[in-house]
Amino acid sequence: MNHYRKLVGIILMALPLTVGWVGRGWYEDARRLTAERATRQAIDAAMARESDIAERVEARLAELTANERVIDRGIIREIERPIYRRVCLEPDAVRLLNDAAAGRAPDPAEPAAALSGRAAGAD
């Protein structure tokens, strides 16, 4: 009987340790699972947000691609026109710039004559 008593005593002392050890393992596993699920939810939310942004960007790029030809034609028309006006430049400079925009080569003697004439008038 004494032998059974010792065995029951050992079992009763080992039982709380074993239950505590198993319970602690379950608790840590539950914490890891909760953290993993939270991480997965955050990743899924971020991916959904990024996907929504990517769809909007793709739609906007499709609009811009459709308008691209119209914009290019407008730019070409503007470049072909003489756009220089007398705002900050003298008439001789405006004429030279308009000639250059039209593709006409300026006469090398003209700018020197125009400048020398203005220098003489300034005195």
Rank of each mutant, 00 (worst) to 15 (best):
G74E: 11
A46L: 12
A46N: 13
L96H: 00
E36G: 01
R31E: 09
L61A: 14
V87I: 13
R24A: 11
R104F: 08
I71L: 06
G20H: 01
A14W: 02
L64S: 01
R77W: 05
A30Q: 13
A35H: 08
S116E: 05
P108R: 08
A114G: 06
E58G: 10
W21E: 03
R104N: 09
Y27H: 12
A112Y: 10
L64I: 05
A120V: 06
L7W: 05
M13I: 02
A105E: 04
G9N: 15
A35L: 14
I10M: 07
L64N: 07
R60I: 10
D52W: 00
Q41H: 15
R86F: 00
L115H: 10
W26K: 09
D29F: 13
V8I: 10
A59D: 15
M47A: 12
R24M: 01
I10S: 07
W21A: 11
E78N: 04
R49Q: 15
R5S: 14
A122L: 03
L89R: 00
M47S: 02
R32A: 15
A119Q: 03
A48K: 11
R32F: 12
T34L: 12
A114Y: 03
S116C: 01
A114F: 01
S116T: 10
L89S: 02
L61I: 15
T34D: 15
R118H: 03
T34I: 08
R56V: 09
A48R: 12
M1T: 05
I11F: 10
L89P: 00
E55D: 10
R73A: 12
D99W: 04
P16K: 07
V19C: 04
R118A: 00
A109K: 11
G121M: 15
G20E: 02
I71W: 13
P111A: 10
P82Q: 15
L61R: 12
T18A: 10
I83C: 02
M47L: 15
L64C: 08
R86D: 00
R85G: 06
A48C: 09
L97M: 08
R40L: 14
R24E: 04
P91D: 08
E63Y: 00
L61F: 07
V70T: 14
I53V: 13
L64W: 06
G25I: 11
A42Q: 10
A119P: 01
Q41N: 15
A112K: 06
E58M: 11
T18E: 04
I76Y: 03
A66V: 09
Y4G: 07
E68W: 02
L115N: 08
M47W: 08
R31F: 05
